[in-house]
C-alpha cells in the first residue's frame, strides 16, 4: 500500500507563546518545534498499516525550510520518505494550504492519506478535509478506531453527545486522526541513525501554481483576558460548600 501522512510542525504545547511587536504574529525565538501531536497519531497509524500490509509511508508537509528538522523526526519514527513544499515562510490560509498539499499528493498515488484531526497551533481542523475535497476523495474525521477491509476503511467517528458513527469509506480516502486511536511510538536511536540517509524531497511552493487570494486574514493577536483573582472560601467542607453554593447563586451561575 502507498500510505500518505500530512505532517505539520507546530510549537511544542509547553512552549511559551509570545506575541511579536507587530501585534499580529508570534515571536518564534524561544519556540521548540515538534510534530503536531495529532499528526504523530496519524503517522503511527500509517506505520502500523505498513507493518500489517506492506508498502511505503510518505509524509507530506507544507511549511518553511526549517520544518526539515521536524520531518527528520517523522523519518526517525519510521516513515520512508518525506516531501516538503517550501512556502518560504509565508503563512497560508486553510484553502491554499489544502491546495498545495493536494497538489503534492496528487502524483503520489496514495491508497490512503492519514492526517491529524487538527493542528494545535492554528486549530483549523479543516485542511485535511480540503485536501480530500480538492482530490475528490471521501474523508472521515475525527477517527478513533479504524480497520481496513478489501479496499475500504471502516472508521469510528465521535459525533455529538458521546455518539459514535461507524463509517465505511471507499479507498483512497483521507482519515483525520483523533487521540485514542493509538499510542505513538518513541523514536529509537537506530531510527534516528537511519533517518539521516532517508530522502526529503523539497519542492518550491511558488512552482505549484498561483495561490488564490486568501479569504481569511488575521488582523490582530492578543493574549486572553486575565481574571480578576480568586476568592478563597475557608471553613469546614460543608460550611465552605454551602457558602460556595450561595455565591454561585448570587452571580447567577446556579
Amino acid at each position: 500500500m502507498k500510505i500518505g501522512v500530512l505532517l505539520k510542525e507546530v510549537p511544542d504545547t509547553e512552549s511559551p507563546i509570545q506575541i511579536a511587536q507587530d501585534g499580529s504574529s508570534i515571536s518564534f525565538e524561544r519556540v521548540q518545534w515538534v510534530i503536531n501531536p495529532y499528526d504523530e497519531i496519524a503517522l503511527e497509524e500509517a506505520l502500523r498499516l505498513r507493518e500489517a500490509s506492506g508498502g511505503e509511508v510518505l509524509t507530506v508537509t507544507v511549511g518553511p525550510a526549517r520544518a526539515k528538522d521536524t520531518l527528520r523526526k517523522g523519518l526517525a519514527m519510521g516513515a520512508d520518505r518525506a516531501i516538503l513544499v517550501d512556502t518560504g515562510g509565508a503563512s497560508l490560509d486553510p484553502f491554499n494550504a489544502a491546495r498545495l498539499l493536494a497538489k503534492a499528493c496528487e502524483t503520489c498515488g496514495f491508497d490512503v492519506i492519514f492526517a491529524g484531526k487538527l493542528a494545535t497551533d492554528d486549530g483549523w481542523g479543516q485542511v485535511h478535509i480540503g485536501v480530500a475535497e480538492i482530490m475528490g476523495l471521501p474523508h472521515v474525521s475525527p477517527v478513533e478506531r479504524i480497520e481496513f477491509d478489501d479496499g475500504e476503511a471502516i472508521a469510528t467517528r465521535a459525533a455529538e453527545g458521546g455518539v459514535k458513527e461507524i463509517v465505511r469509506a471507499r479507498l483512497p480516502a483521507v482519515i483525520g486522526c483523533e487521540k485514542g486511536l493509538n499510542e505513538p511510538r518513541y523514536v529509537s536511536l537506530p531510527g534516528i541513525m537511519k533517518a539521516r540517509s532517508k530522502p526529503i524531497d523539497v519542492k518550491d511552493a511558488s512552482e505549484r501554481g498561483e495561490a488564490s487570494a486568501p479569504t481569511i486574514v488575521r488582523s490582530g493577536l492578543s493574549e486572553p483576558p486575565v481574571r480578576g483573582g480568586v476568592r478563597m472560601i475557608e471553613g469546614a467542607p460543608q460550611t465552605a460548600a454551602d457558602e460556595l453554593a450561595r455565591l454561585l447563586r448570587e452571580v447567577g451561575a446556579l
Binding site: 494545535t120 493577536l221 492578543s222
Partner: peptide, 11 residues
Amino acid sequence: VYGGTATEELL
C-alpha cells in the same frame, strides 16, 4: 489559537 494561549482576530 495556540491551544487557547492567544486570541486572534480575523477578517
